[in-house]
């Protein structure tokens, strides 16, 4: 809705928008600022804003103790593992629904979506018991499977809406030229689908990284990711504000950056194509 407006009005709306945006962002900014304070400065009353002795000591301390690196790596393993496995299952499924639609395709898509509506608590008990039985509790493999499954409907839907936009004629032309199914997918479909797949990957990594229900309930120590690590500081024993802020900043930084790059795709993925 780009329309001609007076400079005065534009200045006022700009100020209002920036003011509110900074207010919304403020808790994150405050956390980042606190991560560079000493523990004494962090709880100073009245609070200090920018003029304190900046220190990176908290980051060093956090990385030294509490096996921070292991939690971080667990997050990486679970996010990447579940995304890779999810793609492996979702790409063929989305491909066949987009290019060989049958009478039941729509119902199938809706059914896949409906699995996403199942509340986690409803199946927490059986999953927990199954995990104990199969010795999957607190393992990377178990978590990768669960996180992959809860995000699978979103991956399939997202890929489906992207694949739908690829003109089918191109695929037919390739088929006419004698391309096998395998080469059709590898050399014709994939190159055209790469942007869509890339944004799907990005969104899925974000969702997997931030997933906190299953990662917290199904891990104890060995496979515990950052979500579990951070929530263990619900009462501030040992680790205080500045160090907690440093640990938190490191936990959110990679995802925040990825998220900013994927804003547009986020809408499509999270509304199942209902809002584009």
């Amino acid at each position: 809705m780009a329309r001609a407006v007076t400079t005065r009005r534009k200045t006022l709306t700009t100020l209002a928008a920036w003011g509110i945006a900074l207010l919304i962002f403020f808790p994150i900014l405050w956390m980042i600022l606190t991560s560079f304070k000493t523990e004494q400065d962090a709880v100073l009353s009245p609070p200090v804003w920018f003029w304190f002795d900046w220190t990176t000591e908290n980051y060093v301390t956090v990385m030294d103790r509490a096996n921070y690196f292991r939690f971080f790596m667990n997050s990486v393993i679970i996010a990447i593992g579940s995304t890779a496995l999810g793609l492996l299952i979702a790409i063929p499924a989305a491909w066949s629904m987009a290019f060989v639609p049958g009478a039941k395709t729509k119902d199938l898509l809706m059914w896949m979506l409906s699995t996403k509506m199942m509340p986690g608590v409803a199946v927490l008990v059986p999953i927990y018991l199954i995990f104990i039985k199969l010795k999957l509790l607190d393992t990377h493999f178990g978590l990768i499977i669960v996180i992959m499954l809860i995000n699978l409907p979103i991956i399939i839907w997202m890929l489906y809406t992207y694949f739908k936009e690829i003109p089918g004629e191109i695929l037919e032309a390739a088929r006419m030229d004698g391309a096998t199914l395998r080469s059709e997918i590898l050399y014709v479909l994939l190159p055209m689908a790469i942007p869509g797949i890339a944004s799907t990957v990005l969104l899925n990594i974000i969702l997997a990284w931030n997933e906190a229900f299953w990662t917290i309930t199904l891990t104890t120590v060995d496979a515990a990711p950052l979500t579990k690590f951070i929530s263990s500081f619900s009462s501030p024993q040992g680790l205080f504000y500045a160090k907690l802020s440093a640990a938190s900043t490191m936990a959110i930084a990679p995802i925040l950056i990825m998220g900013w790059f994927s804003q547009k795709q986020l809408v499509r993925g999270l509304t199942f194509g209902a809002v584009k």
């Binding site: 808790p27 994150i28 906190a212």
Partner: peptide, 22 residues
Amino acid sequence: ILVIAPFFIMPPVAALVWKNMF
């Protein structure tokens, strides 16, 4: 970018920042 940021914060971080620092 500023407005969208809180959505990317993992739930325990968001909750603890509000709880402890606000």
